[in-house]
């Protein structure tokens, strides 16, 4: 089963939820994937050891100038301005290339060879608890993260249980991460920004057909709130969830202590018993949701165990 933790808005606590859930789960069958390859942070908390690193690259064209007859068919086909005939010379712009191989397919002279552009690294390691972490790290300066995310996700073992930490936003990197998930946990906060981006992510998940539950972070209403007229109430996420028919899986209160513990790269489930209790409840709730999904869709489960 693949459970993905997403949010839309950045900094709502995706990584915190992912790593603490992983730490509370029985370790024998758990894998954690950090698909926020632009800024991966799960390793800071899970502290994997014996890390192996593998370079990940993508195909780019390299033109054999001896064979090229300057016909320009490649330029005509390329939608990304990655190959062009300029001043009687064929030029490539590797950073623009989307690796569709169209230029190589269309070239009548077979003049296009396979080169590579480094996308980043795929890293993996296991921590002292036995949690396996697999993550990607995009090369600084590389624009395209989805192909690297795809590579990270290819390591998902369908027989194991996977928690996947998603990148913020609602465009290509988030979609590449969320697709094929069995369940998505959306971490939000009761602010206008949090609600706006949560609603966008819910629309994406409807399109991808992924069932969803919400976690509200910094949900505390006991702190003094403003008396300003027209100020939004702290229950905006609850109201939205009710309207959309999405279950609220857990609420985490705002806590300076929790912010301090997390800021040091420590796990809340280790340092704060009251937080451990909340994460245990959340874990149990997710498991019962997954059981319901399995019952509803036994074919998918069989498919998973067969491969």
């Amino acid at each position: 089963m693949i459970v993905t933790i997403a949010s839309g808005k950045g900094g709502t606590g995706k990584t915190t939820v992912t790593v603490n859930l992983a730490a509370i789960a029985p370790v024998s069958d758990i894998q954690v994937f950090d698909c926020d390859v632009e800024e991966p942070n799960s390793h800071i908390y899970l502290k994997p050891e014996n890390i192996t690193t593998q370079e990940i690259s993508t195909m780019i064209p390299v033109v054999d100038k001896e064979l090229c007859n300057l016909c320009g068919e490649c330029e005509k086909l390329c939608q990304f301005s990655a190959i062009a005939l300029i001043a009687g010379k064929i030029m490539t712009f590797p950073e623009m290339c989307h690796s569709c191989r169209g230029c190589a397919m269309v070239c009548p002279e077979g003049a296009i060879n396979e080169g590579k552009r480094v996308l980043g690294s795929l890293l993996e390691g296991k921590n002292q608890r036995g949690i396996e972490l697999i993550w990607g790290e995009l090369r600084v300066g590389e624009a395209m993260s989805p192909p690297l995310i795809k590579q990270v996700k290819q390591r998902i073992n369908p027989e194991k249980f996977s928690f996947v930490d998603a990148p913020p936003g609602t465009s290509c990197p988030a979609i590449e991460t969320l697709r094929d998930s069995d369940f998505a946990i959306l971490v939000s906060e009761p602010t206008p920004f949090g609600l706006n981006d949560l609603a966008l992510t819910v629309e994406v998940l409807k399109k991808l057909n992924v069932p969803t539950g919400i976690v509200i972070n910094r949900a505390d209403t006991s702190e003094p709130t403003s008396s300003v007229q027209g100020s939004m109430p702290d229950t905006i996420i609850d109201e939205y969830a009710e309207k959309e028919g999405i279950e609220i899986l857990q609420k985490f209160p705002f806590s300076r202590e929790a912010a301090r513990v997390s800021s040091k790269g420590l796990l809340l489930v280790d340092e704060m018993p009251e937080m451990k209790k909340l994460f245990q409840e959340l874990y149990d709730k997710i498991m019962s949701r997954l059981d319901a999904i399995k019952e509803k869709n036994p074919a998918k489960q069989a498919e998973g165990t067969m491969s």
């Binding site: 950045g10 900094g11 632009e38 995009l138 993260s145 913020p168 936003g169 990197p173």
Partner: peptide, 10 residues
């Protein structure tokens, strides 16, 4: 700007 270091950030 957006978060991250990918294409919309560049």
């Amino acid at each position: 700007g957006p978060p991250g270091i990918g294409c919309p950030v560049i």
